[in-house]
Nucleic acid binder design. Structure first.
Lengths: 196, 196
DNA sequence: GCCAGATACGAACGGTCGTGCTATTCGTGT
DNA sequence: ACACGAATAGCACGACCGTTCGTATCTGGC
């Protein structure tokens, strides 16, 4: 890894955390350069537009997400155990990978849901992929007879996402300490329904 | 209503819709003035800071929310019917009250969840109030014996919020037409659990 | 129909934004 | 050790930001 690539990775790492607080649009070349003791133009040269920076921040975050949430769960058994592992790691993800402003993808989703362009397109691809991965895990749960034959995997994926979003909202905005316990209760109810 | 108050209401109306797209921070005095054919300084004079504008936008939106979501449901029977009415009107609320960027409160929640200040404080109060209103409706559902005696009202409120957030995410970002049907399925499952 | 006060305007302020350009420093392969 | 390309810095630009101030226009009560 050459020098350029090293510093660029550092920039992206810090940018992801910053964007989790202020959003991909609130991200600022000047602020970023200040934080990392670089000149604005020096930093800018790594990406050739702000939009390219935003794209790379999302890509960087997705790689991390795969590393700390998805990949480790491949070690657990297929079906329900893996779904539980995903649920657990997913909850720890914002804290564990330096996103002081909460999940970057949640921030980006709300920001980009009506701003067309390549950044939005990328995020949509990422989110679709994540949702269909959840659905796939549910489906293998059916194959393994953990879940009932008629279980709707996409339905479960959307509901699980809802449990996470409500938890995110209640902990981050409302600072409600009981939110996590409620998220777990909701998850158990969902699993119970999947069992049929 | 004097002249000043009239134009100020028009400003807030448009500002709420604009903020639903670009956020309370993305709101811009200049853009607002352009859209409404006012001078920047003339518009600015109505609020004496951008922060005050943001506060009044949130207050304006809350009044509308009460008018189009909450108040009409008081005509329906207490308990489960009222909960269903809330769920229905809640889903129509972004479309029906001119928020082209989706629910302003969702946008604001993600934006403000780590930006301390009076705007955040107001939003937190509003969201707490809304969640406890949902919980109260669930509790009257218990009184009316629609729901089981042990039903956890706050748990149900957080879960219902999750159903709405997942629906918002899936329709707005992912443009998934099946999201609405899934939200309804999730709602029925929640009501089923409340029945015990 | 006048007059005070409310409302709106125009111009200007210091700042920060993203983005070019040119020059300089640095890392690295030979 | 040197040369060459990669990496970074410095400076400038036009645009837009929130905010202020002095002035003009309008409105409503008498």
């Amino acid at each position: 890894m050459g020098k350029g690539e090293t510093t660029r990775d550092g920039i992206l790492e810090h940018a992801a955390g910053l964007a989790s607080q202020v959003g991909l649009d609130g991200l600022t070349i000047g602020r970023l350069a200040d934080d990392l003791d670089l000149s604005k133009s020096g930093l800018f040269a790594h990406f050739r537009s702000k939009e390219a920076l935003q794209v790379m921040v999302l890509e960087h975050a997705a790689v991390r997400f795969t590393d700390v949430v998805i990949r480790p769960t491949l070690a657990t058994a297929r079906g329900e155990p893996r779904l539980r592992a995903l649920f657990d790691r997913w909850r720890r993800w914002p804290r564990e990978s330096g996103m002081p402003g909460g999940c970057l993808f949640v921030q980006a989703a709300v920001e980009l849901d009506d701003r067309p362009g390549p950044v939005r397109d990328l995020l949509v691809r990422q989110q679709r992929e994540w949702l269909s991965l959840i659905a796939a895990v549910v489906r293998t749960g059916v194959e393994e007879s953990h879940f009932a034959r008629g279980a709707d995997a996409e339905q479960a994926a959307q509901e699980l996402y809802g449990i996470m979003l409500a938890w995110h909202h209640a902990t981050r905005l409302l600072r409600d300490a009981r939110a996590e316990a409620r998220a777990r209760v909701a998850f158990e109810a969902l699993v119970g329904r999947l069992r049929g």
